[in-house]
Design a protein around this nucleic acid. Sequence first.
RNA 1: GGGUCGAUACCCGAGUGGCCAAAGGGGGUGGACUGUAACUCCGCUGCGUAACGCUACGUUGGUUCGAAUCCAACUCGGCCCA
Length: 410
Amino acid sequence: MTILMDTAASQLTRLLQGTVNVISEAELQSKLETGRPLRVKLGLDPTASDLHLGHAVVLRTLRRFQDEGHIAVLIVGDFTARVGDPTGKSTTRPQLTEAQVDVAAETYIQQVTQVLDPDPAKLEVRRNSEWLAQMGLAEILQLTSHATVSQMLARNDFSQRHQDGVPISITEFMYPLLQGWDSVMVTADVELGGTDQLFNLLMGRQLQKDERQVQQVVVTTPILVGLNGPDLDGPKMSKSLGNYVGISEPSNDQFGKIMSIPDLLINTYAQYATGWLQATIDEFVAERADQSLHPNAAKRRVAAAVCELYHGVGAGEAAEQEFNRVHKQHDRPAEIPVFQLLAEHGEALTIAKVLTLSGLATSNREATRLIGEGGVKLDGSTVQTDESVPRKDFQGRVLQVGRRRWVQLS
RNA sequence: GGGUCGAUACCCGAGUGGCCAAAGGGGGUGGACUGUAACUCCGCUGCGUAACGCUACGUUGGUUCGAAUCCAACUCGGCCCA
C-alpha cells in the first residue's frame, strides 16, 4: 500500500506539470491510489476543423495520463455543435448536418492522434449525441433544475456580456449543463480543459454529485496566447483570429509563424508548445534570463522543437534552412505554386489581370494598387508600370507579391 | 404586451439632406527598418477593360432636384415597465 501511495504521489507530479487548477489534488491522489485506470475526459467541439497548438496544450496533458496507464475519453461534441454556439461570439454559426459532423469528427480523430496514443485500450472516442439526442423534454427540464440563473451569471463571460448588453440566449445556459451531463454519462474520473472551461468543468462535478456519482477531478491547463501577443494576456490562439499554428500544418509554415511571435512570448511557447520536459524548459528559461541565449536563437530553438514534435526528427532543421532562404536571403522558396495561363484568359493580358487570376490579388483593383505600391515583382525585378503583355511571354516566369506570395507561371 | 433606444464596410465605431465609397481605431496588406513574418515609421485598404460607372450605411416602400441622414411599415437586438 505504501508503494502504491508513493507511486501515486510521483505520478501526481508528472501528471500535473504545467496545469493551472486542480480541484482537488487530494481527490486526484486518492483516485490514483486505487491503482485502477482512471477515465479522463476531454470534450472537443468538432466545428474547429484544424487543431492548433492551443488545443495541443490540453491534449499533451491528456497524453500524460494515457502514458501513466489511464484511459482518455474523448468527447466529440457533435450534438452541442449542431445546436449552436457556446461562446456566443458567432451567433450565426451554421448548423452542421450529421454528415458534416461525421467528416469533422474523422479529421479530428486523425489530428488528435498526432498527440494522443491511439491504442484502443487507452483511447475511447464518444459522441455526445449518443445520449443527448435521446433526451426528452422532461429529462431536459430535470437537467435545468440543477442550476440557477445567478449561478450562471456568476460565470465571468456571462456576467460581462450581461453588463455590456450583449445578448445571451437561453441555449447558451444549456451548454455548461450539457457538458456536465456528458461527464455523468461517461462516468468521468477526471475532466481536463482550458482555464476558460473551469465553470463548465465544475458543472460536471455538481451534476455527478446530484446523480450520486463520485465527483470528477477538474484539471485546467493554460490558454495559449496567440501568435501576435501582443503580451502575455493577448487574445488566445484561435482559428478565427488567424493567430494560430496548426498541428498538421507544413513545418515550414509552423517555423515561420513561430519566428514571428513577440520576444515576450518566447518562454511561454517554450513552456507550452514544445513538449519539452520541465527540466529542459527550466534550463532554457535560465539561459534566457542570463542573456546567454539570443532571442533570435531562442525562438529558432522553440520553432524547431515544434516542427520536430509534429513532423518528426529533422523537420526542424529543414524548416530552419528554408526559413533562412526565404527570410534572410530573400530567396524564393523551394516550392512555389504553379499557375497555368490558358487560352481562355486571352492572348494578351495585363500583369494586374494575371495577379487576380492566379489568386495573388483578390481583384483587379487590388492588383493595380499593389503594382502602384511597388509590391509586385516579375522574375525578381519590380514591376513599374502595368501593361498588356502577350500571354506566351508570361510562360515560365515567376510572379511575386511582397516577400511571401509567389506563383510560377506556365 | 407597453415604453424607449439602436442596426453603418472584415470588426469596433463617427456621421442627422448635397463637400459621403462614408472620420477614427483595429485587422489585413505593400514599403522602409530589423535577429524575425516582432516593435516602430510611411503608404494602401468596395467593385469594374476604369478621369466614367456600378454596388454599399438592417429590409421594403415613400418624401426630395438630391437620402447613411427625413417619413412609414417590417425584421432583429439592448434597456426599462408589466
